[in-house]
Design a protein around this nucleic acid. Structure first.
Lengths: 346, 346
DNA sequence: CAGCAGTATGACATCGATGTCTGCCGTCCC
DNA sequence: GGGACGGCAGACATCGATGTCATACTGCTG
C-alpha cells in the first residue's frame, strides 16, 4: 500500500517528522536565511536561487512550522476561542457559524469548546485558551458569576460575552433583547384575548431567563391581568421536563389557554406535549427554529447567526487595536405569527 | 475605568504584553530553570523557593506561553482540525459535537473551518491546518476528488474522512450505510403499496448521494417496479429548489403517491411544499431531524453524533501511534416510521 | 581607479519555554 | 575523615522560524 506511492524526498519522509527549513536550505545548498527569504517572497533573492529552494521544499514536502513562526513573530496565534454549550443546540451552532464566517474574513480561525454548562470546566477552558494564546475569547457563560473572566480582558486578550452580560460592564457583549421579546410575546397573547397564560421557563438564575420571566410578569401586571399567576413554571431545564410540565399544566382546572415557553428546548417539549391534542392552547416560543413554519409555531425570533457575527466583529476591532470602553450590541426580536400563537382562548 | 482596577504586578501589566517566565524568575530571585521547575511541579525544588516563585507568578499574572512550550516539546499542537460544511446544517453540527466530546477526553481541542462546499477553499484550509501543525485532520470533503488530501496522511498527520470516502482506500473513514438506508426506504414505501415513487436527490456527483440514488433505483428494479421512472429528480441542491421540485412533481399526471428525499435539506423543502396539502403523498426522508416526531415525519435515521465520535476515535488511535491499514467505520441506519411514510397510495 | 550604491547572501541573536548537564551543599555511612 | 549520594539550583543548548547586521560581489560614476 505505501509502496504504491514513491517515497519522495529521500531524506526522512518516512519518519513522520516534518522536514525543517534548515533541511530545505541544506538540500538547496543555501543558508537557512536565504531559504526563508525565498519561500516568503522577500526581495533580494536571485531567481535561480529561489527556484532551487522551492524545488528542494517541494521534494521534501516541506511545510512551514506555524508554531515556530508564531513564537518568533510575537507569541500570539491566529486563533479565536469560543466557549459555549453543546453544538447540537441550534442556538449555539448558529452563533458558532456566524462567528466563523466573520473571523474568516480577517484570517482568524475559530476554536470551539463546550463548557457543558459547568462553571468550573468553563474556567479551566478559559485558562487553556489563554495559555494557547488565543487572540480573543468569546464566551456564552454558563454560570451566574464570571467576574474572573473580565479581569483577563484588561491584560490584552479581548473578551466578548454572548447572550449573558458580564457582571460588571467591563467587557464587550452581544445580547438579545430579552425584555422586548418577552413583552412582545406577552402582549401578543393578551391581544389575542388570553388571560390564563402559562409561563414555562428555564433556570431563573440565568440572566436571559430572568429577564424574560420578569418582562413577561411586568407585561401581565401592566395589563392588569392576574390570572396567569397559578401557571408560572420556572427552572425547567430540559426537553423531557418541559413536556411533563406542559402536560401537568393542561390538567389544571381551569386550564391555561395559552403557553409561553422561554427557549427553544422548552418549546420543543411543549410541542411534544401538545402533539395530537384535540384542542391545544395557544403557544408562543422564544427562539425561532427550523421547520417552525411547517409546524405553524409562532415564535419570538432573533438572528443568532448575526449574534455570532457581531461578537466576532467586536472581537476583531479589539484585536485591531480599538481601546474604547466596553460596548454592548443588542439583537432585536420579532414576533412571527404562524398560527400556534393566534389560536383563540376557549 | 482602567484606574478602578489596581495595576497588579507593576512590571508591565499595562503593556498588553504578558510577562515571561524570565520575569517571574527575576522577581522571585531565582534562575529561569528553577522557576520552570516550580511551576511545573517538578521534583527538587525547595518548598520556600516554590512558594516564592508561585507568588511572583501570581503578582505578575503570569500565564505560560503554550506556543513556546509546544515548539520546544515537539512542534505539534493539541489541536485537531475539522473541515466541513456550515454548522447551521444540523448534520455538520451534530458531527462536530460528537468529535468535540470525544477529543476532550484525550485533552485535544477542536478547530473548525467551513469549506463552503468549495474544493479550492478546502485545499487552502488543509494547508493552513497543516501549517498550524494540527495533530489530525477530519474532513467532510466538498468535492469529488480529494487525492491531494490523502498524500498528507503518509506524512505523519492522520486524516479521517467523514461521510464521503477517500478516492483510494488510503485513509480512515466513517461512512453512513447509504446503500442500506436507501434500500430500506425504498422497500418501506414499496411494502406500503406504492409504485409511483418520486426520488428527490442532491448533487449526484457526491458519493453519498450517488449511493442513495443507485440503491433506490436498484431496489425498484429488484421489485420489478418501473413506474418510478418519470419521477426521478437529482441535483436539487437547496431547500428552495427542493420545495419547487416537489410542487412540480405533485402537478404531474398521474401524480406520484410517495416521495423519498435523500437528505435533511431536501426533506425540509418537501415538508414546506406539502404543508397544508389536503391529500399529501407519503414521504420518507434521509437523515433524522429535530421535531420529526412532532411533525410525524418518517425518516431513515442514523447517529450523526456517533459519526463524529467514531471519527475522533480513529484519529486519536492514529495520534497514539496506531500504524495499521486504513479502516472504514460504517454507521448503520434505521427507518423510523412516524406517519408520513405510512400514508397509503391514493 | 577610487568610491559608492545596490544586490545577494550568510552569521548570529532571538521569541519563551524545556531538557541536559554540571556544581554545590549537606548528610549519611563505613 | 572521606567518599557516595540525594536535594537543590543554575548555565547552556535547543525547538524552527524570523529580524538584524555584516559581508562579498557587481557595476557604475566622476
Amino acid at each position: 500500500m505505501s509502496a504504491s506511492r514513491p517515497a519522495e524526498g529521500s531524506f526522512d519522509a518516512a519518519a513522520g517528522r516534518r522536514p525543517t527549513l534548515t533541511q530545505v536550505a541544506a538540500l538547496a545548498g543555501v543558508s537557512l536565511k536565504t531559504a526563508s527569504r525565498a519561500l516568503n517572497d522577500e526581495p533580494n533573492v536571485a531567481e535561480a536561487t529561489g527556484r532551487r529552494v522551492r524545488e528542494a521544499a517541494d521534494r521534501l514536502g516541506y511545510r512551514l512550522n506555524g508554531i515556530a513562526r508564531e513564537l518568533r513573530r510575537g507569541a500570539t496565534s491566529a486563533l479565536v476561542g469560543l466557549i459555549s454549550g453543546d453544538l447540537t443546540n441550534p442556538f449555539y451552532s448558529a452563533v458558532a457559524s456566524g462567528i466563523e464566517r466573520e473571523l474568516r474574513q480577517h484570517g482568524l480561525q475559530l476554536v470551539t469548546a463546550n463548557n457543558d454548562e459547568d462553571a468550573e470546566l468553563e474556567q479551566s477552558l478559559v485558562d487553556a485558551f489563554l495559555q494557547r494564546r488565543v487572540r480573543a475569547l468569546l464566551v456564552v457563560p454558563s454560570g451566574e458569576h464570571h467576574d474572573y473572566l473580565a479581569i483577563e480582558g484588561n491584560r490584552g486578550v479581548p473578551f466578548v460575552f454572548l447572550d449573558r452580560p458580564p457582571d460588571e460592564a467591563t467587557a464587550d457583549a452581544v445580547l438579545i433583547d430579552n425584555v422586548g421579546g418577552a413583552r412582545a410575546a406577552a402582549e401578543h397573547l393578551l391581544a389575542g384575548g388570553h388571560r390564563r397564560i402559562a409561563l414555562v421557563a428555564d433556570l431563573a438564575r440565568m440572566a436571559p431567563q430572568r429577564a424574560r420571566i420578569d418582562s413577561f410578569v411586568a407585561a401581565m401586571k401592566a395589563a392588569g391581568n392576574e390570572e396567569w399567576e397559578p401557571y408560572l413554571r420556572t427552572d425547567v431545564h430540559d426537553v423531557r421536563r418541559a413536556e411533563e410540565t406542559v402536560r401537568e399544566l393542561l390538567e389544571l382546572e381551569p386550564r391555561p389557554t395559552a403557553l409561553f415557553t422561554t427557549n427553544n428546548r422548552l418549546t420543543t417539549g411543549a410541542l411534544r406535549a401538545l402533539r395530537g391534542h384535540t384542542d391545544p392552547p395557544a403557544l408562543v416560543g422564544f427562539d425561532d427554529f427550523d421547520l417552525a413554519d411547517v409546524i405553524g409555531a409562532t415564535v419570538v425570533a432573533h438572528d443568532s447567526v448575526a449574534m455570532g457575527r457581531e461578537a466576532a466583529r467586536l472581537a476583531h476591532e479589539r484585536i485591531s487595536g480599538f481601546r474604547g470602553p466596553a460596548r454592548t450590541v443588542t439583537i432585536s426580536t420579532t414576533v412571527i405569527p404562524r398560527g400556534s400563537g393566534e389560536r383563540p382562548p376557549r
